[in-house]
Simulated assay, not measured.
Amino acid sequence: MAARADRRGAAEHRQRLLRGLAGRVVEVGAGHGGNFAHYPPTVTEVVAVEPEPTLRGLAEAAAKTAAVAVTVIAGLAEDLPFADGEFDAAVVSLVLCSVPDQAKALRELRRVLHAQGELRFYEHVIPRKQPKRALFQMADRSGAWPALAAGCHLSRDTGAAIAAAGFVIERLDRIEFRSAALEPRLPYILGTARPGG
C-alpha cells in the first residue's frame, strides 16, 4: 500500500517534508522506513523510533540502503529514551493519528528538541467540511476505524494539537490526497513548527 501511495504522490510529500533538514534528527513512528531515502545529505544522523516489531524490521532493512546514517530503535512516542534538547529536528509522518496519547507524544517531541530545533509533520487530519467531518468522527467514536486501521483516528485535529503542545507553527500546507483509486480523498497537513518560548 505504501508503494502505491508513493506512486500517487506521497513520495513527493515526503520529499517536501524533509527538504532542508540538517543535523541530528529523530523520526518517531518510522514505520517501514519509507522516509529514509528522502533525507538530504545535510542530515548527520537519523534516530528512528518504531514500536511495532514487523515494521521495525522493515525499517532496519531500509536503513541499510539509506544515503544518511540511520539507527532504528524500539520505543514509544509518549516516552522517548532521549535527553532534553538532544535533537536538531524531529519528524512525524502519518503517526500522530495512531499514538494512544497524542498530547503526551507532542510534549515528548518538544522536550527532545533543542530550543532552535524544528518539528516537521505530515499527517492526515479531520476534514473541515460536512458531511465528511461527521462521518470521520462517527467512524472514530464507533471504534470501527481504529480497530481496522491499527489505531488510526480519522478525526484528530493534529494542527491544533501541535499548537496546544507549545509549538509555534511556521508553515502548514493543506493537501487533499487519495492514496489509491478506490479510496476517499483525505485531508493532510504538511508543515514545520518550532518549540515556543
Rank of each mutant, 00 (worst) to 15 (best):
A147V: 07
E60C: 05
A5Y: 08
L113G: 10
D140T: 01
R174E: 15
T54D: 12
G29A: 06
A165L: 12
E12G: 02
A63C: 03
F167S: 07
R194H: 13
A77R: 10
F82H: 12
E183S: 08
P187V: 13
V28S: 00
R178D: 04
A62Y: 11
V91I: 08
R111D: 08
D84Q: 14
L182Y: 03
L94I: 07
A67G: 10
A61N: 05
L148E: 11
D101P: 04
H13F: 12
V168D: 14
V47N: 04
E12W: 02
G57D: 09
A115P: 04
V72W: 14
G23C: 00
T54M: 10
R4D: 07
A59T: 14
R174A: 15
E176S: 10
A161I: 11
V26N: 03
P184R: 09
G31F: 11
R141P: 00
R141V: 06
A5V: 02
Y188I: 03
Q102E: 15
L21M: 01
P40L: 06
M138I: 10
T54V: 14
P51N: 08
F136E: 09
L154N: 12
R128A: 14
P131A: 01
D88H: 11
A90T: 02
K64R: 15
A61M: 08
A77W: 07
V47T: 09
V47I: 12
A90P: 01
A74E: 15
H153L: 05
L18C: 02
V26G: 02
S155R: 09
D173Y: 04
P195Q: 08
V91L: 06
G31T: 07
A11L: 13
G31Y: 10
I175V: 14
S179A: 14
K132Y: 06
T158Y: 10
E50I: 10
L119A: 10
L17A: 00
H13P: 00
F36N: 04
A134R: 03
A77V: 06
R156F: 12
H13G: 02
A180R: 09
L94Q: 06
